[in-house]
């Protein structure tokens, strides 16, 4: 843990807190997720730490369960995006030629359609369940990962040690997973943090628009949507998930920044 800057430590601590809350939601949440416990939009009190929402449910409970859904969907989507994007990106870089052309141009095609519109169209014709939500988000995000991993892999692919592996007769699987992946991992891990934040914003946007996580399940975007009318009456309920999103985003960013810095110095160690 030595040599990690304070900001990164702070980021890690807060991120860990959010993830812990998500994991242990049923244990730490004071009430049931959709249990109506009081009046509509009650102010914060000893019983309801953050007050109640538009239906009289405990907001803290909703926040904790909402964080669970949001973080789970975002993590899963990021994983899908990375697995898909990195494997395809590496494949394009390693095979080159027309394989690369077809894959890269298809990727450009998908990227040329604004993600939000694309997602809205797809989700309005498909049943909105969590797996479908995750797949759609993952697929759309994988285009970005594809671009990055292809660019990184193209650089590594021309290094002598990859040529040495080819001359040895190694298959493409070995080249991709044993020669290129370990050397591309650091920039990808740094990107992972950023992509995760975008995924959180994306799922929150979708839920706010009503095409994301469906009620009665809670998620941060949905809580904003449910409580947005309260703002007119000076009820801060809609702002709390916003604060949570911002806090988590900044924390993950701090960690990602540190990871990125570490990568650059490790790259130097590669002897370039």
């Amino acid at each position: 843990m030595k040599g990690i800057p304070l900001t990164a430590l702070l980021g890690m601590a807060i991120t860990a807190l959010f993830f812990l809350a998500a994991l242990l939601a049923p244990i730490i949440a004071p009430y049931g997720m959709s249990e109506i416990v009081g009046d509509v939009w009650e102010p914060a009190s000893a019983d309801y730490w953050l007050g109640t929402d538009n239906l009289g449910r405990d907001l803290l409970t909703r926040m904790i369960y909402g964080g669970r859904t949001t973080i789970f969907v975002a993590s899963a989507a990021t994983m899908v995006a990375f697995t898909l994007g990195a494997v395809l990106g590496f494949t394009a870089a390693v095979y080159g030629g027309w394989v690369d052309q077809v894959m890269s141009r298809t990727n450009d095609l998908v990227m040329s359609i604004p993600t939000l519109i694309f997602a809205l169209v797809v989700l309005s014709v498909m049943p909105v369940t969590l797996p479908i939500l995750i797949m759609v988000m993952g697929l759309l995000d994988s285009t970005r990962v594809f671009r990055l991993s292809r660019a990184v892999a193209v650089d590594i692919n021309v290094m002598d040690f990859v040529e040495a592996a080819r001359l040895r007769g190694e298959g493409q699987r070995w080249v991709i997973f044993r020669e290129i992946l370990p050397n591309a991992l650091s920039p990808l891990v740094a990107e992972l943090g950023l992509r995760f934040i975008f995924a959180i914003l994306f799922i929150s946007t979708l839920s706010f628009l009503g095409l994301g996580v469906q009620p009665p399940m809670a998620d941060w975007g949905g809580i904003v949507k449910e409580n947005r009318e309260g703002i007119v009456y000076g009820i801060p309920a809609a702002l709390i998930p916003a604060v949570a999103i911002v806090t988590l985003s900044i924390s993950v960013n701090l960690v990602a920044d540190w990871a990125l810095n570490r990568t650059t110095s490790l790259k130097g160690g590669r002897g370039v």
Binding site: F161, R168, N183
Partner: peptide, 26 residues
């Protein structure tokens, strides 16, 4: 290269000018 057998590849090895980039740093 693709048409050569593993045995043919084995018989013929190569050493590079820049040893630092000829080995996988990981």
């Amino acid at each position: 290269l693709k048409a050569r057998s593993r045995e043919e590849l084995r018989q013929l090895q190569m050493i590079y000018q820049m040893a630092d980039v000829a080995m996988n740093p990981r």
